[in-house]
């Protein structure tokens, strides 16, 4: 690993100031992706600003029909939170399926979505539950957050401070995990909300997206057969050694059907 400057931020404001809007500065939260990436020399920032110790960016709060999770909250804390289990059990389930015990103890929701790995789990929840991503300067709708593979709407030096999830009527997350890495080959969040059905998909495409064909089918008939009956297009889906684009397309419908069945 090449060396870099390191600064531990005491607050979100300090972190943003330390980053100075530069492209050559990276925020470090849990480091579950950034540290391996640094070790492989795939990225070489001049400076790393550690936001993992910022108290204001940690914790979970439920107010009315919204669950707000601080960006530096670990997957283990989300998975084990009684508040999340009660309000959005599908979100606690999703967090419990990320990586392994040690990774869940370090990895954070903000880090996961800022990295925007096409096979990460949280993007399915951000898109599927219609979350709002709050940064130091604005709020970004979940639908607009992921823009391309490993690309987000974030600007250089912009820091995620929290993510808010509206509480759905019902939801479930189903995942086909890669048996070696644990990453989602395909992951599907189905949410029944007062504004309709939302289906967020991760792992299948370059970035998380909504399966509108399945949303439409479930909107008129909320049944696993309706989800299973939708043939998803494999155009623009990921095609690699783990699975073909056609297989992933088929998995989207199957996993959506399983989620609907689990919701009951």
């Amino acid at each position: 690993m090449y060396n870099f400057d390191y600064e531990k931020a005491a607050s979100a404001d300090d972190a943003v100031k330390a980053a100075g809007g530069s492209d050559d500065v990276m925020f470090l939260a849990g480091g579950m992706t950034l540290i391996p990436t640094l070790k492989l020399r795939l990225t070489q920032p001049e400076k790393v600003v550690d936001v993992g110790g910022i108290g204001d960016m940690k914790g979970i709060s439920v107010s009315g029909d919204t669950v707000t999770i601080g960006a530096a909250t670990t997957h283990a804390d989300v998975a084990g939170s009684d508040d999340v289990k009660k309000a959005i059990p599908a979100l606690a389930k999703l967090a419990s399926l990320i990586g392994d015990q040690q990774v869940r103890n370090r990895g954070t929701i903000g880090g996961s979505i800022a990295n925007a790995d096409p096979a990460a789990d949280y993007p399915a929840a951000v898109v599927g539950l219609g979350a709002t991503v709050k940064t130091n300067k604005r709020e970004i709708a979940g639908d607009d957050f992921f823009t391309a593979m490993f690309e987000t709407a974030l600007e250089p030096g912009e820091l995620i401070t929290s993510v808010s999830f509206p509480v759905p009527e019902k939801a479930d997350y189903q995942k086909l995990a890669n048996p070696a890495s644990g990453y989602a080959m395909v992951g599907v969040m189905v949410a029944k909300t007062k504004d309709g059905v939302r289906v967020g998909v991760t792992g299948a495409g370059p970035s998380a997206f909504r399966a509108s064909a399945i949303e439409d089918a479930l909107g008129s008939d909320f049944s696993s057969d309706a989800a299973k009956g939708v043939t998803m297009s494999s155009d623009d889906l990921n095609n690699d050694l783990h699975a073909t684009a056609e297989y992933r397309a088929s998995c989207i419908s199957t996993l959506a059907a399983r989620a609907v069945k689990a919701i009951g």
């Binding site: 390191y6 531990k8 480091g31 391996p36 040690q102 990774v103 103890n105 370090r106």
Partner: peptide, 15 residues
């Protein structure tokens, strides 16, 4: 008190 992979943590993070 929590298990972590020490190959994926910086010593300075443990200050």
């Amino acid at each position: 008190g929590k298990s972590v992979k020490s190959c994926t943590m910086l010593a300075v993070q443990c200050d």
